[in-house]
Design a protein around this nucleic acid. Structure first.
Lengths: 163, 163
DNA sequence: CAATATTGCTCAGTATACTGACTATCAGTA
DNA sequence: TACTGATAGTCAGTATACTGAGCAATATTG
């Protein structure tokens, strides 16, 4: 099918399916739904955002909130609530940093470690399901293109990735 | 770099960059930021979601909320607020349907039409910017793969696309 | 070392998204 | 026609995201 601006009806808007922004929203919507379904079926109550935060805290013990936000590209005002909920679920601990009294150090708890371990199969299953329409090669290509587009646009959002 | 499960450190989680769900979130985040920046610079205050709704209402005069939601894959509980805001901005009108007293008919106003026309360059510019890291061919391929993955996962979210 | 700038975090407000429940209405059928 | 089920829309509650503002503490600099 021809999909160029010239081919569109006069006065008409580009079809949603030609808008990368719309496709991004739609794919993300499905990705979240699949994640929640798989994780929920496995008996856990954790969102994709909470999972990424938890996994990153485990991999970087004692990191502060801003660093965590940078590692997963969350806004610093968003991370506050995410951490609140992880603390409330007993999966992490938040305590004042001894070196910088502005900062809070984050640490995973044993319960958090246990949850992370048991939840992993469901998370991996979810990643497979959200790509189920694609061949393995296509899935890899999709991820490659997303990574490339994201790298080029990193600084355009308020919450860029910081290594 | 080798990116297989077997190659990961024991006990470690997959890298975020290997998670299609994470990449989806990140790309969408950038897409929204770029859209708001371009549209804002052009002097308009419209979100991606509001834009898609407005464009779809224009293309389908008199449609009801559920049909609109289906055409752009929004949840029916989300569309209520989106429409509220479009009405409040004077871009659309919502009135009771004469045929079905449960339903509301949606119609674009002249102001909405004018806005849509003037905003289009900014919207198209935004779509280009969010793909600026990719060649034209890669951009097309990314959209193709997203469309394919979305088609296969359409029924997995609460708000599937309905033609 | 005092003034200034920057940083870490939080908060209030707004806008998607979704869950689950509810009302009003409509459609199909016994 | 009375009953049943489905549908259109809304609402309350929760969880991302972001804007913009603000406080406290640290870093920088004249």
């Amino acid at each position: 099918m021809i999909r160029t601006v010239a081919a569109l009806k006069e006065n008409s808007v580009k079809d949603n399916n030609d808008m990368p922004g719309h496709l991004a929203r739609r794919f993300q919507q499905i990705a979240v739904a699949v994640f929640l379904a798989e994780v929920g079926d496995a008996g856990f109550d954790l969102t994709p955002v909470q999972y990424a935060a938890l996994a990153t805290i485990k991999a970087n013990p004692g990191l502060d909130q801003v660093t965590l936000a940078g590692l997963i590209a969350y806004d610093r005002t968003t991370i506050t609530g995410v951490i609140d909920r992880l603390v409330q679920k007993g999966l992490i601990e938040r305590r004042a940093s001894p070196r910088d009294r502005r900062a809070r150090e984050l640490e995973i708890t044993d319960e958090g470690r246990r949850t992370l371990r048991k939840i992993t199969p469901a998370v991996e299953s979810a990643q497979r399901i959200m790509l189920r329409g694609l061949s393995a090669k296509e899935g890899e290509e999709l991820m490659r293109l997303l990574r490339k587009a994201i790298a080029a646009g990193n600084e355009l959002s308020r919450a860029p990735l910081r290594e």
